[in-house]
Design a protein around this nucleic acid. Structure first.
Lengths: 338, 338
DNA sequence: TACCTTTATGCAAACGTTTTCTTTCAAAAG
DNA sequence: CTTTTGAAAGAAAACGTTTGCATAAAGGTA
């Protein structure tokens, strides 16, 4: 057992009195190496505790077997569910995943793109910052023909594979559902409008309201980062004086949960006086009482699609000149708050 | 803008008529290079879109600037919270984190250890599989003097840094609390006993019960993977005939939530007839009604400690001969179920 | 002028693997 | 008995960066 120094192909070669090239070939079952030699090489390799240096191999072949992932935050339910699926799919194909968080900072995102490029990742998977509207920092990947796949928070009109949810439809279904439940005065608590998700959800909702000829009043529309603190502030404002809205559509579940808790505390009956609808179908929605209606986004499917798009791109090298979009449908999950 | 081929240090050198070594030094502000040359080099580097090939640099310096992380599952609340902290701390020191999931499979864990070793990661951070009792696959890291840090699910008696929660104390506090609330017949739904966490929580609980001279009856003790399905089966068994226990301590929150929901459905009044206590202080515990009492584990602190231990090890190269343990205290969070 | 520093740069080897191009050797074909 | 063929293995270059050592020019001192 070699302590302190890793053994290399050369060590094995020396020990057996063969050339390093022979060892290299033997280890990967090259057809022109005799079974006898292969056996000997493998035996010695095992004895010396040989492990292939992927760095050296990567340098030689100019690839790393590592796929980079940039994500705003790991700990959001939707994201961690997607990452799990991506990781498992990708790993089963012999790739590793290097996971980085942009923490929703545009600056960090651009830095990460450069760092991962420098690491010569085989491909890059990204869910953008909610503030990313300029996507030129990703050009270095397309310019150098390195596979690039976006999911969830994605650019419009960037020549890459785009795996996204049907946020327009989600917004539309949500609006339609609240209307069908009798809401006449709907409030919408949305994320920041620099992000495609929230643009689409808003457009979807507007479309549903327009069809029913119900307006979305300015005083009923809120747009900000969907944190607990912001949601609380918005609730305070929204319920500061009557009339209260009779339906609140929240663009994420955290906000919906805060709203529901606020309503309970304020003695507003849910769903009788107020209907609340969330987005993402976070596990918490099932558990809170009354259980929150929400929009399911199928993170596992999205993750798998994303990973498959990446692996496909790596194998076919079929780089798109235009955006190639794949839309995962959204699904309304009706529970007790509507 | 170079399309299809990345520019190297040699390209820059050729363009300026200097040696590659000069370029290399200029790019990292080596003191023996004149300001004039540095400026010129940096200008050309910027123009050519040069990005340092970390693979090549890593090969030369035999390090990769990448830290490996093996975790059973990304999507568990506690884990994703720890990972977030690790990732942010580590990244601020110029390292990247490569995140892998063992999916609680021992075989996958050993494979991942070898793959990450092959990638010449700078260090390895691990939270083990719940079934890992043989830790010899990690020896390759200690043998080759590569920093190794375990957290949460950790080995006993392995010469490495160990960052763990105070699970004995958690179990003890939980037991004491239920006793203080008047429970006489306490059930314990535990994880599998191959894992240090669950061993310690059990010992802690036993210790509290012993002090109060209350026995932990065999029929009140359950040990299995703490999934929703298993928890439901256990509830079914536990509440199949009277007398029911008057307190249930669950070694994770998912199980506590299932138990609470089962009790509600069965018309058992919580906390009057049955007190329920979870473990980990998952966000869901605050939201469910009645709100679940639980044991906080401070994942962010643990993550930061873990990352710092790793960075410290990388800098000082102070490899432990014996386990170096750091214990993060647990804290009882009393809510409505007890 | 000869010698020594100091400062700035170049040269070349090294990291470990892969792969192209040769070479060797034995057996089959002529 | 020579030539051809084919299998098996070796030699060497290459990937891009870093670094110890050598060198060169400029300036200072004796």
């Amino acid at each position: 057992m070699p302590k302190g120094s890793a053994s290399t192909i050369v060590d094995i070669a020396r020990e057996l009195g063969v050339a390093p090239s022979t060892v290299s070939r033997a280890l990967k079952d090259h057809p022109f190496i005799s079974q006898d030699t292969k056996d000997k090489v493998k035996k010695v390799a095992a004895r010396l505790g040989y492990r292939r240096n992927t760095l050296a191999a990567g340098l030689r072949n100019s690839h790393s077997n590592i796929i980079g992932l940039i994500v705003p935050r790991i700990s959001m339910y939707f994201q961690s569910a997607v990452i799990t699926a991506i990781q498992n799919t990708i790993h089963s194909m012999g790739f590793e995943l290097i996971v980085c968080q942009s923490n929703d900072s545009y600056k960090q995102e651009t830095e990460l793109v450069n760092v991962l490029y420098g690491s010569r990742v085989e491909g890059l998977i990204v869910s953008c910052t909610m503030y990313t509207t300029d996507f030129s920092h990703f050009k270095i990947f397309t310019d150098n023909q390195i596979p690039l796949v976006f999911y969830d928070r994605v650019p419009r009109n960037f020549p890459a594979h785009i795996i996204r949810g049907d946020d327009f439809e989600g917004g539309y279904m949500g609006g339609k559902h609240l209307l069908e439940r009798g809401c006449k005065d709907i409030a919408f608590i949305n994320g920041v409008l620099s992000c495609n998700l929230y643009q689409d959800r808003l457009e979807g909702l507007k479309s549903a309201l327009k069809k029913a000829k119900v307006p979305l009043k300015k005083s009923r529309f809120f747009s900000h980062e969907l944190t607990v603190a912001n949601a609380e502030a918005t609730c305070k404002k929204m319920f500061s004086r009557k009339p209260f809205p009779d339906g609140v559509f929240c663009a994420n579940d955290t906000t919906a949960i805060v709203t529901l808790q606020y309503a309970k505390k304020a003695g507003i009956k849910v769903p009788q006086e107020l209907k609340i609808l969330g987005y993402s179908n976070d596990p918490r929605t099932e558990i809170i009482s009354p259980a929150l209606s929400s929009i399911e986004q199928f993170p596992a499917e999205m993750g798998e699609k994303t990973a498959k798009a990446m692996l496909d791109l790596i194998h076919t090298r079929n780089y798109p000149k235009k955006p190639v979009e794949s839309v995962t449908p959204a699904k309304l999950i009706v529970r007790e708050t509507t």
